[in-house]
Design a protein around this nucleic acid. Sequence first.
DNA 1: TCGCTTTTATTGATATGTTAATTATTGCGA
DNA 2: TCGCAATAATTAACATATCAATAAAAGCGA
Lengths: 145, 145
Amino acid sequence: MNSKLPSTSRSLPIALIRAREGAMAPIRDMLADTGITEQQWRILRVLAEHGSLDSTTLADRASLLFPSLTRIATKMRDKGLITQTRDEVDRRRQLIAITEMGQKFIDSHANQAAQIVVGFRTRMGDENYEKLLDLLALLDPGPRD
Amino acid sequence: MNSKLPSTSRSLPIALIRAREGAMAPIRDMLADTGITEQQWRILRVLAEHGSLDSTTLADRASLLFPSLTRIATKMRDKGLITQTRDEVDRRRQLIAITEMGQKFIDSHANQAAQIVVGFRTRMGDENYEKLLDLLALLDPGPRD
DNA sequence: TCGCTTTTATTGATATGTTAATTATTGCGA
DNA sequence: TCGCAATAATTAACATATCAATAAAAGCGA
């Protein structure tokens, strides 16, 4: 038999997927009917926090693959949420910044988003919440300068 | 400003995504060039563990949405990895079982997959590993009852 | 400067995620 | 039994994930 393999109920990848579903559900609810997707929300959050960023850094911070970012950014630019400008020094590079409209969207949902976080902290306990973030960081592969 | 929102570097959803990337990377490497995707591997794993299952239960155990399962199952049947049979009592339902070919694929990769798990346990420490699974379970939204 | 390599970004092709609409059965109450 | 709500599965439509291939610009050594 395959007693070598752990039960799928204790499988780390599956546990991570299910946890993500649970963590994202309230945010998904918040974004429903706004026309903003989960990934677009992440991009706006990162830009609001760090200001203008080059594409590579933005993709890393928002945990998106580059090709995904390319396509999402095009849509967000068309919707007026971000701007894309060529780096005049290195014309291969591109700088992405949040627009006033994008910032307004963040502002108008900041309270609700913060409440969602409070909800999880309350539900799990502050200590567990912090511990979980620390343990997850151990699995984090990417370089986060 | 948005000091209400946590830094994206301590964002639970982003941490979960990045952790999943880290956890899946070795499995992705293992499956590369086999023609079996990550999701197909999960389905085979669940079927090998539980035997024949109806679609709804399978989707839940493999953490897949129903429409995704429909498409993936069709491909897996065409490849000879699983079988799909109508429930004769309730013709709406469908039973899915692993084939001998599917089981062989599991068997031929069980050792390698088990080694990957050992690697993570070693890297994080057994105690942390178990603790992480317990904490993730707190976020699990649970089966659709 | 020329040619080659590297880096950055886009595009292509396929698979999956996600919600809504649709179809096929079943179950149930008037 | 008829009609309709509920369930299981599929299909549609769009967005994203993922890897491969390509294009464009920059860097670099002969």
